[in-house]
Lab assay of single mutants.
Amino acid sequence: MKVIFLKDVKGKGKKGEIKNVADGYANNFLFKQGLAIEATPANLKAL
Rank of each mutant, 00 (worst) to 15 (best):
M1I: 05
M1R: 00
M1T: 06
K2H: 05
K2R: 06
K2A: 01
K2T: 05
K2N: 14
V3A: 00
V3D: 00
V3I: 12
V3F: 00
V3T: 00
F5C: 02
F5E: 01
F5G: 00
F5W: 04
F5R: 00
L6S: 05
K7H: 12
K7P: 00
K7L: 08
K7S: 13
K7R: 11
K7N: 10
K7E: 12
K7G: 07
D8Y: 05
D8W: 04
D8R: 07
D8H: 03
V9C: 06
V9Y: 06
V9L: 08
V9K: 04
V9E: 03
K10V: 14
G11L: 02
K12W: 10
K12N: 13
K12M: 06
K12P: 01
G13K: 00
G13Q: 05
G13Y: 01
G13N: 00
K14I: 03
K14Y: 10
K14S: 11
K15W: 06
K15S: 13
K15E: 10
K15T: 07
G16E: 08
G16L: 10
G16T: 03
G16Y: 15
E17Y: 01
E17Q: 11
E17P: 00
E17F: 03
E17M: 04
E17D: 08
I18T: 02
I18H: 01
K19L: 11
K19G: 12
K19M: 14
K19I: 11
K19N: 15
K19Q: 13
N20P: 13
N20T: 07
V21M: 04
V21L: 07
V21F: 00
A22E: 12
A22N: 12
A22V: 09
D23M: 08
D23F: 09
D23E: 15
D23S: 10
D23T: 15
G24R: 12
G24L: 07
Y25G: 08
Y25Q: 08
Y25A: 08
Y25N: 06
A26Q: 00
A26D: 01
N27L: 12
N27V: 12
N27Y: 07
N28T: 08
N28G: 13
F29W: 13
F29C: 12
L30G: 00
L30F: 01
L30S: 01
F31N: 02
F31C: 07
K32H: 15
K32F: 03
K32T: 09
K32D: 14
K32P: 15
K32M: 09
G34L: 07
G34Y: 04
G34K: 06
A36W: 01
A36H: 01
T40L: 08
T40Q: 06
T40E: 06
T40M: 05
T40R: 07
T40C: 05
A42F: 12
A42E: 15
N43Y: 11
N43V: 08
N43F: 03
N43E: 08
K45A: 13
K45S: 13
A46P: 09
A46R: 11
L47E: 06
L47C: 08
L47T: 12
